[in-house]
Design a protein around this nucleic acid. Structure first.
Length: 690
DNA sequence: TGGAATGATGTTTTT
DNA sequence: CATCATTCCA
């Protein structure tokens, strides 16, 4: 969007536009105005993990049972309240909410909410929902601030308006109140965020709030072929809740939608990879023209494997984002704590990582004292006389040393650039050394990730701020809102890659060739969404979004067996497949090249296949039987012997040094040049004899 | 205190 | 199946 606007109005002008997600734009506002709401300028933003950890602490401090008060659902409940601008006090006073909680046997919810907020405040931290909640408070309680931003933002455009929640709605309403120069774009058929409080009512309110509105219906689709547009229409017409409209296109009819049935999740991966490979050749397409869309992040694995085997570049969006990886969060925790000593979550994370002799008993004592006196852990350490924690003096010394180190980082924040300080912290905290000693492939990857973020800081530091070319680009600048960054913000230069992401993440994007995979009951639509018509209709809209990402060709795919929760389960094709007008669909005969000898099928699995194929469901065209190299699945334990050369899926080639233990639990000691010596249980290790 | 061994548990979807 | 949490022992 930024690029498109730049090409129209030029880089200079477009640089002045505030553009971003609600969270990032208003995090920026809050940083500027933090003193108004009694937050430190460099407040920390707690991501979902951080905030769940705080909730866990609250639950245990209130002596509640985390089987009853499940942290995840408590978190969802608090989030829901915040998105509707309900404070803990209002929550407590609301008969409806209180009754719901009593019904659900969770009467203490309001207390958890209050304690959670208190803890976040004490830590100088905001969670994602706070960014919007506090913005609302700021604009509500400080007329001069409101006035300032009303003049600053004279024109407001909100895209994907159907996905805004009440909190966001009210921010916009306040800001637009003065001039009413506001334009919103939305499509009720693409509303897919009801689960996080998005409210379609906001679109309807618009007419009421701005009676002089003008409405433009955008019913012509410029993106997709007739086949895709019509198929999508046929899907969405199954929904009861919808604003009627007729989407049409002038584009040509185009390809049929392909329906592909696979025998397993792995076959599905291989099929899609092969199809991309072929399409790329026959249509002269680039990798970046392809997208694989799935319902849940966990589904990416089989596609990754298949694409890797064919040497095709891909990029996964979302999921475990780079910034959420453990090693990255560890390093960032040093940064965060250096910037904000009250950030208890970061402190707990790193006070003994890398290990420096501060064990859990010690941390436990500190936490108890911090709760008792209602002050951040840092204060407990700094003022042992005011807040006695009863640590033995030797331990106290270690804890003090840790704080001294952090303080030395703090003192350099404003004077050093982000990279220099980042490098220094990574080194003198011992983090780099700790990761460097880990020679497992995962360990090496972690070390590389740290290097990568340091590189990013280097780039950032060398970059000149056009507004202020003299200024040192500090760590504070770098750290701003890093919790809000997603993988989509990362750019590694080579962008000709196949995209893989959830359907949610794909909204607003488009690709020539789209594969919608895992179209199975209980997966898409999700098992969680089968309880009510409303939920199912949201899943259907999600499918609509997926299908309309495609410009030229869409491939729908499902597998009849799939590993879920580590178990093989049978799957039924998704109801959405049948809901498409069948005239647009072409059922593919599965064609896969002969497999290279398989390395990994075990007996249980291949037997299951034999049973499953005979009961092929429904009237699909006959399938070319997949040749899944069953010849190799009798690879029994006795085949592994000392001296053999073997290959492991992850560690690569290696030599068997020793075999011990009796049959099904035979253990082999294998030396891998790339990964060192490993002890592996033969029945799990899937070793391939070379 | 710290590491290894064992056991529980969880999967929607995102900022 | 992975990851985390808990437990156990040096």
């Amino acid at each position: 969007m930024k690029e498109r606007i730049s090409t129209i109005i030029g880089d200079k002008e477009s640089a002045n536009i505030w553009m971003g997600t609600f969270h990032s734009v208003f995090a920026r506002v809050l940083r500027t105005e933090s003193d108004r709401i009694n937050y430190p300028k460099n407040f920390t933003i707690y991501d979902t993990q951080d905030s769940r950890s705080v909730i866990k602490d609250v639950i245990s401090e209130l002596n509640l049972d985390d089987k009853v008060y499940k942290p995840a659902s408590v978190q969802a409940r608090i989030s829901g309240a915040k998105n509707n601008l309900i404070s803990p006090e209002e929550y407590r006073r609301s008969p409806d909410l209180t009754n719901e909680d009593i019904q659900a046997q969770r009467p203490m919810m309001a207390d958890i909410y209050a304690a959670y907020n208190r803890k976040c405040y004490r830590a100088g931290a905001m969670d994602f929902d706070d960014l919007l909640f506090k913005t609302n408070e700021l604009l509500r309680d400080f007329p001069d601030v409101l006035h300032y931003y009303q003049h600053k933002f004279q024109f407001i455009l909100v895209d994907e308006y159907q996905d805004t929640n009440f909190s966001q709605y009210l921010i916009i309403k306040q800001l637009a109140a003065l001039r009413e120069n506001i334009c919103v774009v939305g499509d009720d058929a693409q509303s897919i965020y009801a689960f996080r409080g998005a409210n379609i009512q906001n679109i309807l309110n618009f007419r009421r709030d701005y009676p002089e509105f003008a409405m433009y219906k955008l019913e012509q689709n410029y993106r997709s072929t007739k086949t895709i547009v019509n198929a999508a229409n046929s899907i969405i017409s199954k929904n009861k809740d919808q604003i009627k409209k007729t989407v049409w296109t002038d584009n040509e009819k185009g390809d049929y939608i392909t329906l592909q049935r696979s025998l397993s999740d792995n076959d599905e991966g291989r099929y899609v990879a092969n199809d991309i490979f072929e399409t790329r050749m026959t249509r002269q397409a680039a990798f970046k023209d392809f997208a694989i869309l799935y319902r849940t992040n966990a589904q990416s694995r089989s596609f990754e494997e298949a694409l890797r085997k064919l040497n095709m570049p891909y990029r996964i969006y979302g999921g475990q984002s780079f910034y959420q990886r453990k090693e990255i969060k560890d390093l960032l925790a040093y940064f965060r704590l250096s910037a904000n000593h009250n950030d208890d979550e970061s402190l707990k994370r790193i006070i003994n990582y890398p290990a420096r002799g501060i064990g859990k008993t010690t941390v436990e004592k500190l936490i108890i004292a911090s709760a008792k006196f209602d002050v951040p852990i840092w204060e407990v350490i700094q003022q042992p006389n005011t807040y006695p924690s009863e640590l033995p003096s030797a331990t106290m010394r270690k804890v003090m040393d840790f704080c001294t180190m952090i303080k030395s980082f703090t003192s350099q924040i404003e004077t050093h650039n982000a990279f220099d300080l980042g490098q220094h912290i990574a080194q003198s905290s011992g983090l780099l050394k700790e990761l460097h000693t880990d020679k497992t492939p995962e360990g090496v990857a972690r070390y590389d990730n740290i290097q990568e973020i340091l590189n990013g800081m280097k780039e950032f530091s060398d970059d000149v701020d056009p507004d202020n070319p003299e200024a040192v680009r500090t760590m504070t600048d770098f750290m701003i809102d890093i919790a809000l960054l997603t993988d989509a913000d990362k750019d590694d230069g080579d962008n000709d890659k196949i995209s893989m992401m959830t359907v949610h993440a794909a909204k607003g994007l488009e690709f020539n060739y789209v594969y919608i995979v895992g179209l199975e009951e209980n997966l898409f639509p999700s098992q969680m969404a089968l309880h009510s018509r409303e939920e199912l209709e949201e899943e259907r809209r999600l499918f609509y979004v997926a299908l309309t990402r495609a410009k030229q060709r869409a491939v729908l795919s499902y597998a009849i067996t799939r590993y879920r929760w580590g178990q093989l389960s049978q799957c039924e094709p998704s109801r959405f497949i049948e809901e498409i007008d069948q005239e647009y669909i072409n059922v593919a005969a599965m064609v896969l090249p002969k497999q290279e000898p398989a390395r990994s099928w075990n007996n249980e699995r291949s037997n299951f296949f034999k049973g499953a194929t005979s009961t092929a469901p429904r009237g699909n065209k006959p399938l070319t039987r997949l040749n899944t190299a069953t010849q190799d699945d009798n690879q029994e334990v006795e085949e592994i012997a000392e001296g053999m050369e073997v290959e492991h899926a992850r560690f690569g080639k290696g030599k068997v040094l020793k075999v011990e233990g009796k049959l099904p639990n035979t253990k082999a000691t294998v030396y891998f040049p790339s990964a060192g010596q490993k002890e592996l249980l033969v029945k799990f290790a899937k070793l391939k004899v070379l």
